[in-house]
Amino acid sequence: MGPALYRPGASPVHRLPPQVKIVCAGVAVLCVVATPRDAFWGFGVHAAALGVVWRAAGIGPGWFARRALIELPFVVLAAVMPFTGGGRRVDVLGLSVSVEGSLAGWNILAKGTLGVLVSLTLAATTHSGDLVRGFHRLRAPKLVTTIASLMLRYAEVIAAEAHRMRVARLCRGHDPRFLWQAGATARGVGMLFLRSYERGERVHRAMLARGWTGTMPEPAREPAGAKAWAAGLSPAVTAAVALGVGLCLR
């Protein structure tokens, strides 16, 4: 959920306090996971609520679709399950398909896709630094927020170092497209680890010299108002209502 996924904007979704969006995303994912797999209309309600959030945020579905390809292995698994599952089987277009396997595959596909899209929505509308501050305002353990803050601060530094090392290898004739260059790539990864470790040691000594006490300075608390909580949790409430109706109709 770093800057690569964040889409700057001034929409109502972007302006919501980060702790509100974190709670909303967590509740929404829990509702999606708890939705019965045969409540097809319930998944439609979840998707519709997510589409409303995208429209309010001013981000098109194409942006999310391209980044949701990370779940492709689960899609392949879901596509195979109707043909490998047991139980009662039916013929669909001349193919023998397992009913239980089809439901299991649909369950994986629907819940996995919605979970990924909810996470991408949170990342696209909330800067990584704001996410850390949001968890801090939700009283997450200080050790967790401290590690996350330092990781976010130096992830770009390490990425820039890796880019410089790659450019240096290319200038010396390294071509990563060939298999026999795998050794040079592996040595580069090892050198990057050593440089990152040494940099971390230097940074830690510098922090101790400046009075580091083991915790990051606490940001000023900005409590979210009732209106912000009501607006931010409305998609989660919609998902919870759909879950409740789906459970009652079983």
Rank of each mutant, 00 (worst) to 15 (best):
G101T: 04
S128R: 09
K111A: 14
H163L: 04
G115E: 04
K111T: 11
L170K: 09
V116K: 13
A186D: 00
I158P: 04
T121G: 11
L143K: 09
A160C: 00
K111Y: 13
S102F: 09
V116D: 07
T125Y: 10
G115P: 12
I158K: 00
R169A: 10
V157E: 01
P141M: 10
L152S: 03
G87E: 01
A155L: 02
G115S: 09
V75Q: 12
Y154V: 01
R177I: 03
A160L: 00
H174V: 14
H136N: 03
Q181H: 15
T125L: 11
S119W: 08
A123E: 05
G129H: 13
M151L: 02
F178C: 03
G183E: 08
C171L: 15
T126R: 05
V90L: 12
L117S: 05
S96W: 07
A168W: 05
V75A: 14
G87K: 03
M81Y: 05
L138H: 13
P141I: 09
V80P: 11
D175F: 07
A148N: 12
R177D: 11
L103H: 11
G101S: 06
H127R: 15
V118F: 11
A160N: 03
P61W: 08
D175W: 09
R166T: 01
E71W: 00
L109T: 07
R88W: 02
P61T: 06
G183P: 10
V144A: 15
G134L: 06
T185D: 02
T84I: 08
R133F: 11
A168V: 05
T185M: 00
N107P: 15
W180H: 11
V157M: 01
V118K: 06
H136K: 05
Q181K: 11
S102C: 09
M151H: 01
C171M: 15
T126M: 08
A184F: 01
T84V: 10
S98T: 04
V116Q: 09
G112N: 07
T145C: 12
V76F: 14
L114G: 09
L122E: 11
A79S: 12
V92L: 08
G62C: 05
R164F: 05
L152E: 02
G105T: 12
V92Q: 03
M151N: 01
R164I: 07
V92N: 07
L72V: 14
E100Q: 08
V99F: 10
F83W: 05
R153A: 06
T185Q: 00
A155F: 02
M81K: 01
L117C: 06
A65E: 07
T113P: 08
L170T: 01
G85P: 08
W180Q: 08
G60L: 06
M81G: 02
L93M: 13
F135H: 12
E156I: 00
V97I: 12
L95M: 08
G101M: 03
V99R: 05
F83V: 06
G86V: 02
L120W: 14
G86Y: 03
H127E: 14
L114H: 14
V92C: 09
P82R: 04
A159N: 00
V157W: 03
R133H: 13
S128C: 05
G86S: 04
V75M: 14
I108F: 13
